[in-house]
Nucleic acid binder design. Structure first.
Length: 481
RNA sequence: GCCGCCUUAGCUCAGUUGGUUAGAGCGCUAGUUUGUGGAACUAGAGGUCCUUGGUUCGAUCCCAAGAGGCGGUACCA
């Protein structure tokens, strides 16, 4: 049976093109900000990828893993950050420091896929390794907003939301949540503010929450007062960065970690202003948590606000299309030496999927198709196609064995801007017949009877054989505008 | 992982109270038109009725298990 594992998408021309174009525009932004390219292999030793080592029971939980000849565990990379940490650790001596690189390529996660969620997808990252300080994070944040715009998100279609782990820690400390299990449960609940709203999050912080299928999720078991304080923090986001900072000041308390967190956001604000980052693109959002493990300071997330609808007409919440943050301990795992680092990643596949659902990915033009008018001897079609290609026009001679009508349908389905015909009639007259398919389709819309349609031959004309290239080029160039 | 729903043609779905050749619409391939995309008409191709086991004289239909799909939830480094 021909069947495809889900989450591993087949991509046709239009999507391939959209993703590649997006990668080119995003990496152009990264290069402009001074980052250099780095490619690493798709597979790493499993232990280089972090704590998610394959175990004997479930070697493929989360990551795709396999054993080498010598029985070492290898894994397909699940992001581009862990391989960077491995590379930086291995080559630290010889690298310019701080090391600033970008990378683009596929990553794999063995998780349940859904709309906009894949098991193989493209990411486009930029990271600065070996530099601490809020201005370095602010650079990532400002560049992230620019990258989102380069990727095709317009005014009001996205925001970059920023938070810091320090404030989260301060709040947890403030309500006396010291146990690791409780901390994780609270952070996970916070992260779902977007999804479930304040009352859903309150349930998760308290006793627990029942989902639509009747399944129950146990909550963090906080007191009423604890729930109130955590929610007050999560909902402290305001329209501007300054207002949010002010609101946060009243809910995070006066502890050391709280002050450090506020100072961090304040420093980021000042740097963002220096970078000229638009206030509308970047907000502080205390409910942003991100993944739980390797981030140590500021965390940020790019969210697509643009409304997307699937082919059944249902609204799809795409949500996060990029993320990043500071990870000061990742390189230390290899070298033992603490190396500060921060980075950002655009989820190219998810963004492209969102744009495809929003209908912003247009169909590409196909090649000019030269019809084969002589089943016994296709030479003339081959010659004409060659002549067009030599002139730099994308063209092919029809390679099938069908008659005229299927050949026209073929050209139509390929999105050909034009077809060229040269049968015995044309050869005798020293001409070629050229049909502009787009013009033809437009004219045909006004014709109802088939007989009239056939006689009118809309969009079609004869040209001297010598004018072939010039006449076809005019049609192709008109299409490209 | 857990919960719920689902699985018959490429797609959307009928249908058989368990009976011999399983249907429609759309799509596809072609013809009507030496040699013209859409429309119309005509013809054709395409199915282990998800799989395996059970019950039965007989299963696409009943029972069980499994796989796959969709949605929710958990996890998401």
């Amino acid at each position: 049976m021909a069947r495809k594992p889900r989450g591993l998408p087949d991509k046709r021309e239009g999507l391939i093109h959209a993703e590649q174009a997006m990668i080119e525009r995003v990496t152009a932004v990264y290069r402009c900000w001074g980052f250099e390219g780095l490619d690493t292999g798709a597979v790493e030793f499993a232990d280089a990828l972090g704590k998610f080592l394959p175990d004997d029971d479930r070697p493929n939980a989360g990551v795709f893993a396999l054993q080498d000849d010598d029985e070492q565990w290898l894994s397909l990379r699940y992001d581009l950050t862990a391989p960077l940490a491995r590379f930086a650790a291995e080559n630290w001596q010889t690298l310019p420091k701080p090391f600033r690189r970008y990378a683009a390529g596929p990553v794999w996660r063995n998780e349940k896929p859904g709309p906009g969620r894949f098991r193989e997808f493209l990411q486009c990252d930029a990271d600065t390794v070996g530099a601490g300080g809020a201005h370095v994070d602010a650079e990532m944040i400002a560049m992230a907003a620019e990258a989102m715009r380069a990727a095709g998100a317009g005014d009001g279609e996205f925001t970059v939301r920023v938070n810091t782990r320090r404030l989260l820690n301060a709040v947890l400390e403030g309500i006396g949540a010291t146990g690791e299990t409780a901390r994780l449960t609270i952070l996970r609940a916070l992260d779902k503010l977007d999804k479930f709203g304040p009352s859903g999050v309150a349930d998760l912080l308290g006793a627990g929450r029942m989902d639509a299928s009747g399944d129950f999720t146990k909550g963090a078991g906080l007191s009423i007062d604890g729930v109130k304080r955590v929610l007050a923090f999560a909902e402290a986001g305001r329209a501007t960065r300054g207002e949010t900072l002010e609101a946060l000041g009243t809910v995070v308390g006066t502890g050391e970690e709280a002050s450090a967190g506020l100072a961090e956001l304040d420093a980021i604000t000042r740097a963002l202003e220096a970078f000229g980052a638009p206030e509308t693109d970047i907000v502080f959002d205390p409910s942003i948590v991100r993944g739980l493990d390797y981030y140590t300071g500021p965390v940020f997330e790019a969210v697509l606000l643009k409304q997307t609808v699937d082919d059944q007409g249902g609204v799809v919440q795409i949500g996060s299309v990029g993320g990043g943050g500071r990870y000061d301990d990742l390189v230390a795992r290899f070298t033992g030496e603490k190396v500060p680092a921060t980075g950002f990643s655009v989820g190219i596949s998810r963004l492209a999927a969102a744009f495809a659902m929003a209908g912003t990915i247009g169909a590409l033009n196909g090649p000019v198709v030269v019809l084969n008018m002589d089943r016994d001897d296709p030479s003339e079609a081959l010659r004409l196609a060659t002549e067009l290609r030599n002139a730099g026009i994308r063209a092919e001679a029809y390679m099938g064995s069908s008659g005229m009508r299927p050949q026209m349908k073929y050209a139509d389905r390929r999105g050909a801007p034009a077809v060229v015909m040269a049968g015995s009639d044309e050869l005798a007259k020293g001409v070629v017949t050229i049909k502009d398919l787009k013009v033809g389709a437009a004219k045909a819309a006004a014709i109802s009877s088939n007989q009239e349609y056939r006689e009118a031959r809309p969009g079609q004309f004869e040209a001297p054989r010598a004018d072939l290239v010039a006449r076809v080029r005019a049609i192709v160039e008109a299409e490209d505008e």
